[in-house]
């Protein structure tokens, strides 16, 4: 029974339950329902248009903003800040995480500093960001770095603390020394937490991106939303918000999930969910 199961189950089938002929239906359903409810609410005509734009208006604004090039330009600027901020933040957090997790002296030194700084929200850095980098992408990127850094570091540290000692001991009795233990046990074992940290890091990054661009920039999606509000163009506010949501959806679906499906899910460390409980 278990033999037959294991030999036929494909380890990478991403969503076996959605693999029918109409798999796309279940993908679209949640969005279709969301839009229907939205349309229904706006047809009630309870609120003025400015306070509650309809899906159609938003779609129109969306097409206009793409045609005029405003949306692609702002999206490009935002993505650039986000990516750069994320890469810099993670590039500091990941090595520091392993240093703190695997080295007593490193932990003793950095832990108090990290604890002091982590309660400070990324947006609290806006005044200094503007003073140091001036209004614009530099300031925004700096704020994103400060927001990405802590969730990545924290989740990584948690992951390192949770590595099963018996796995390390087992490879030590096979001859593994420190670096082999790190490369073959600790690194893969911390991947699920690292992925969670990256997810949260990007999510926090988005928050700071929008907040930062509203205050400390003259372009980007956050600025576009802020600007649209100044002119009561509520449909364009929603366009900006949706652009952020869709960008995240695409990043998750086409970058993060495939990585997880090839690694942590394939190894049986993480599942999509638990249907039996």
């Amino acid at each position: 029974m278990s033999l037959a199961d294991t030999s036929t189950a494909s380890p990478v089938a991403p969503r076996p339950s959605h693999r029918g002929r109409f798999w796309w239906f279940s993908e679209i359903l949640p969005f279709a329902v969301g839009i229907l409810i939205w349309q229904a609410l706006s047809s009630l005509n309870v609120w003025p248009r400015v306070l509650f734009p309809s899906p159609l208006e938003v779609a129109q604004a969306f097409v206009e903003d793409i045609a005029s090039g405003v949306l692609p330009v702002n999206l490009g600027v935002s993505l650039q800040s986000l990516l750069l901020g994320f890469v810099v933040g993670a590039a500091i957090a990941v090595p520091l995480g392993y240093l703190m997790g695997l080295n007593r002296a490193g932990r003793d030194f950095f832990d108090p500093l990290v604890n002091l700084l982590q309660a400070i929200p990324g947006l609290a850095w806006i005044p200094f960001a503007i003073l140091w980098f001036g209004l614009g992408q530099g300031a925004v990127t700096f704020i994103i770095v400060m927001s990405v850094f802590f969730p990545v570091l924290h989740n990584l540290l948690t992951g390192i603390r949770m590595v099963q000692p018996v796995l390390i001991e087992a490879v030590q009795t096979l001859g593994a020394k420190r670096w082999a233990v790190i490369a073959h046990v600790i690194f893969p074992a911390t991947l699920p937490n690292l992925m969670t940290g990256i997810r949260l890091g990007i999510a926090f990054g988005f928050r700071s991106l929008v907040g930062g661009e509203m205050i400390a920039s003259t372009n980007g999606l956050g600025y576009a939303i802020f600007n649209a509000q100044q002119y009561f163009q509520s449909a364009r506010i929603v366009v900006g918000m949706l652009a952020i949501g869709i960008t995240w959806l695409i990043m998750d679906r086409f970058i993060l999930r495939p990585i997880e499906q090839r690694t942590t899910m394939r190894w049986g460390l993480v599942r999509e969910g638990i249907e039996t409980a």
Partner: peptide
């Protein structure tokens, strides 16, 4: 490596 150990909890590397 001269003293390889088999543990009760298998301890295979999941990856």
């Amino acid at each position: 490596a001269d003293r390889g150990m088999v543990f009760q909890e298998y301890a295979l590397l999941p990856w």
